Amino acid sequence: MKPVLTGDKTVLRPFTTEDADVMWEIINDPEVVRFTFEPSTELTLDRLRSWYGVRTADPDRLDLAVTDRATGELVGEVVLYEWDPSARSCTFRTLMGPRGRGRGLGSEATRLVVGHAFEQVGLHRVQLEVYADNPRARRVYEKAGFVVEGVRREAALRGGEWVDDVLMAVLDHEWAEARTRREGAQVTG
């Protein structure tokens, strides 16, 4: 069952085929291309429609549309994938379009879906990879409790320059500790 997760600023919901047109605009944003897709990735609107049309059927991954709670506008996505039931782990990725940036929507969406992974699914570990030249994303992940585990040096050739991949993860007990600190800060703040 694919959940709907609601925060103060965002609602995360399962994708529909109708979301493909907006996601097409989002994934063609130059910043999204720079930090998300390999330059050789070939996507078409038809392939995207097919992709989002079946996302809710996959039992081993969770793809959710990030929407602005105030307007209902689709602004990005969060995904838990590469689920390993024996290790109780998965990989996380996200992307935010231009209308979703700089307002805390990505930070809240990250906290909501990672919280769901630990608190509802019962995972032990959530990991991700982020390009080293994407400080905005790294800050979001660090605020959510992810820590750097390693760096794959010069792992990707992007725009004629080599870029490092930063490997990050958060464990269930680290998530619980960070959540307690966040809730304590809200009470005292």
Rank of each mutant, 00 (worst) to 15 (best):
T94L: 15
V140Y: 05
R125P: 09
G122T: 05
E119M: 12
L167S: 06
E142P: 06
R136H: 13
A117R: 01
R138K: 14
R103M: 14
N134T: 05
L128I: 05
G102R: 07
G104W: 03
G115Y: 05
W162P: 06
A156Q: 11
V166E: 02
Y131D: 06
Y131Q: 10
D84T: 11
R111Y: 09
G145K: 00
D164H: 05
R152A: 12
G106H: 01
P98L: 10
G106L: 02
D84P: 05
D133A: 06
V79F: 10
N134H: 09
P98D: 11
S86Q: 14
P135D: 14
G106W: 02
L128Y: 00
A109K: 00
V114Q: 02
W83E: 10
A109R: 00
V147H: 11
R103Y: 05
W162F: 13
P85Q: 08
R103G: 14
V147Q: 14
V147R: 13
L171N: 02
E149W: 04
V121Q: 10
R88I: 12
E174I: 09
Q127A: 15
E161R: 13
A156P: 08
S107V: 09
L171R: 04
D172P: 08
W83K: 11
H116K: 06
P85S: 08
S86C: 15
R99E: 10
F92R: 07
V148F: 00
N134D: 08
R103W: 04
A144H: 06
Y141L: 09
C90L: 01
V166M: 01
S107W: 04
A144N: 04
G159M: 03
G159K: 04
V170S: 02
A117W: 01
R93G: 12
A156S: 11
Q120S: 15
L95F: 13
A109H: 00
G122F: 05
Y141G: 03
R125T: 11
L157W: 07
F118D: 01
Y81C: 15
C90R: 01
G100I: 01
G106P: 00
A169R: 04
E154V: 08
V147D: 10
K143L: 10
T94E: 12
L128E: 01
M96I: 15
A137V: 09
V126C: 02
E77C: 15
R152W: 08
K143F: 02
R103V: 15
M96N: 03
A156E: 12
R136L: 10
A132S: 13
E154L: 09
L128R: 02
C90T: 05
S107R: 12
E161Q: 13
R88E: 15
V78E: 04
S107T: 15
E129A: 14
E154H: 09
F146E: 01
V140Q: 05
V170C: 04
L167D: 04
R99K: 14
R93H: 11
H173K: 14
T91M: 14
V130Y: 00
K143N: 08
L123R: 00
F118Q: 05
L112M: 10
V114N: 01
G160E: 02
Q120W: 12
